[in-house]
């Protein structure tokens, strides 16, 4: 049942995905309202799917790759819906909808009907570590999208050739504010996520074990620390902050997607 729900959600997210593609091609909002409604409906199915799965496995459904992607997809939708409710920035959808769609799509690809939970993951730490990290990632994704919007708007304003896209994008101040606030939410979350991960590792192996994923997450965390530092101390904002925010999010992607292929403790 949870797979059916997930596929339903995926179908609805596809509408959002098409909206993003057409909006980019037309340089003009294309069926935004229906897409927004579809994303919202998709989110409801998605959450229902995750809840059903949790009841199935009697465990936080984050132990499979399928579940991880699905969970991340749902959190990104949540992040988008919150950011949209607060800022009413329709163009954010152009970035968020494809990511959500792709995450959910990948989740579907990885679906394994007979899950076996690796014993190492049978720990209450999973309820703390993984949601913290994933929520943090979702917030940092919003920061990333805001940074991209900032850079597009900045370039249009500097070049003085204003395209139609320019009229749809929020002001520089709003983009920067959104990027900063998402960072302010995302950074503490990944910090706590990393700390909880270290404690978990200690409780299992008694030592701080490192693997590629741990290494990358530290690097990523450091990039964001730099960004926070520069924003607070050096008064960085706008373009420079946007570039660093993009670098940070590339780190997130490498950590999340890539690290499994390097082997290590997080390969399940």
């Amino acid at each position: 049942m949870h797979v059916v729900l997930l596929r339903l959600a995926l179908g609805l997210y596809f509408i959002g995905f098409m909206h993003s593609v057409l909006t980019t091609l037309n340089k003009k909002q294309t069926f935004f309202r229906p897409a927004l409604a579809a994303m919202f409906a998709g989110f409801v199915f998605h959450v229902a799917s995750i809840v059903l799965r949790a009841m199935d496995v009697r465990y936080l459904p984050l132990t499979q790759q399928y579940e991880a992607f699905s969970f991340f997809g749902a959190l990104t939708t949540l992040g988008f819906l919150i950011a949209y409710a607060k800022y009413r920035i329709a163009p954010l959808s152009v970035f968020a909808f494809p990511l959500i769609f792709i995450m959910t799509f990948v989740a579907n690809l990885f679906y394994d009907p007979n899950p076996s939970i690796p014993p190492v993951l049978r720990s209450n730490w999973i309820y703390i570590h993984t949601p913290l990290v994933f929520l943090g990632y979702a917030a940092l994704f919003i920061a990333f999208a805001a940074a991209i919007m900032y850079l597009i708007q900045d370039r249009e304003l500097k070049s003085k050739h204003l395209t139609r896209f320019h009229h749809r994008l929020p002001s520089l101040e709003v983009c920067d504010d959104l990027a900063y606030k998402s960072l302010a939410i995302g950074f503490p979350l990944i910090t706590l996520g990393i700390i909880s991960g270290a404690l978990w590792a200690q409780s299992v192996w008694g030592v701080w074990a490192g693997d590629a994923k741990v290494l990358f997450s530290f690097l990523t965390w450091f990039v964001y620390l730099l960004l926070i530092h520069y924003r607070l101390i050096a008064g960085w904002r706008g373009k420079k902050a946007a570039y660093l925010s993009i670098v940070g999010f590339i780190g997130v992607l490498v950590t999340f997607l890539g690290a499994n292929y390097f082997g290590g403790l997080h390969t399940f």
Binding site: Q153, L157, H166, H167, L169, P170, S171, L172, E173, V174
Partner: peptide, 21 residues
């Protein structure tokens, strides 16, 4: 009636794109 077609309104419109409110 959307976008500015006078110098002074264009200035306001651009200011809004930079500062928002």
């Amino acid at each position: 009636s959307q976008s500015a077609v006078s110098v002074s309104y264009a200035a306001v419109e651009l200011a809004r794109k930079i500062f928002g409110d």
